[in-house]
């Protein structure tokens, strides 16, 4: 497989709530190679979302190091992190997070608008994305005129419009029925098929089992790191020996 995309070592994340401390992530070591398909499972409160936010540079660890594509990203400034998010990371959320007043096409174009890409280039890419996700006839619909599955397809189109190397999905099927959820998973997996690294947080064991590599979290710790059929342990990155 390819070079390591994500290298976490000794990551700690502690939340302070008044006097009590919640150890949301504890000594996490993790290596994910470019192009992998990873599912993250575990009971509620085990730190799955916290891990994903950290991987997406929406949150910072209290200690430990995070190297993304070989570069230490924990020390970057907020604006540098924003640039990394813009260029390399796509998010898919459980509650879609579409901007209600914008049409499907405008929602898909939003990352390009924020990145300052000229309108001429945007138009063609949005049209292609609408075609790829079967939304040609929904381009001018607002989110409240779309079904849940269509909304999540818009969200996936938006997450991939900047052609990121990494797509992070936090319970992307949580608000969808079973068949729609599977359809969304297939779209994400197809994306992985094109070489995009995919990390999906899910409660659903069946959906999680589809990933070639499955992480199980409990109490902020990595409990299990199982690599589907061909057993490949977490240190596949080939940490310096």
């Amino acid at each position: 497989m390819g070079a390591p995309l994500i290298e976490l070592s000794a990551i700690e994340r502690v939340f302070h709530l008044g006097d009590s401390r919640v150890h949301a992530l504890q000594s996490i070591d993790l290596c994910i190679t470019a192009g992998e398909y990873v599912s993250v499972m575990g009971p509620s409160g085990s730190g799955k979302s916290t891990l994903l936010n950290l991987l997406g540079l929406l949150d910072r660890p209290d200690s430990g190091s995070y190297r993304l594509a070989g570069r230490d990203v924990t020390t970057l400034s907020a604006d540098e992190q924003a640039r990394v998010r813009s260029e390399r990371i796509g998010f898919v959320f459980q509650s879609f997070h579409l901007v209600p007043r914008l049409t499907a096409a405008e929602n898909i174009a939003l990352p390009m608008v924020l990145a300052g890409i000229p309108p001429a280039q945007r138009g063609e890419r949005v049209r292609q994305a609408l075609r790829d996700y079967g939304l040609e006839n929904r381009a001018d619909h607002r989110p409240d005129q779309l079904s849940g599955g269509q909304r999540q397809r818009v969200a996936i189109a938006r997450a991939t419009i900047m052609q990121p190397a990494l797509v992070l999905a936090d319970e992307p099927t949580g608000n969808l029925d079973r068949t729609t959820g599977e359809e969304v998973m297939r779209l994400l997996e197809a994306l992985n098929g094109t070489g995009v690294t995919l990390i999906v947080v899910t409660h659903d064991g069946a959906l999680g089992a589809r990933a070639r590599r499955q992480l199980l979290m409990a109490d902020g710790k990595l409990q299990h790191d199982r690599a589907g059929s061909a057993d490949r342990p977490g240190e596949a990155c080939g940490l310096p020996t």
Partner: peptide, 16 residues
């Protein structure tokens, strides 16, 4: 607020 969070996730800088 949620929209602002989204914009940040999509790569918007503070200045934007």
């Amino acid at each position: 607020t949620a929209e602002i969070g989204l914009l940040k996730a999509l790569g918007a800088t503070r200045k934007t």
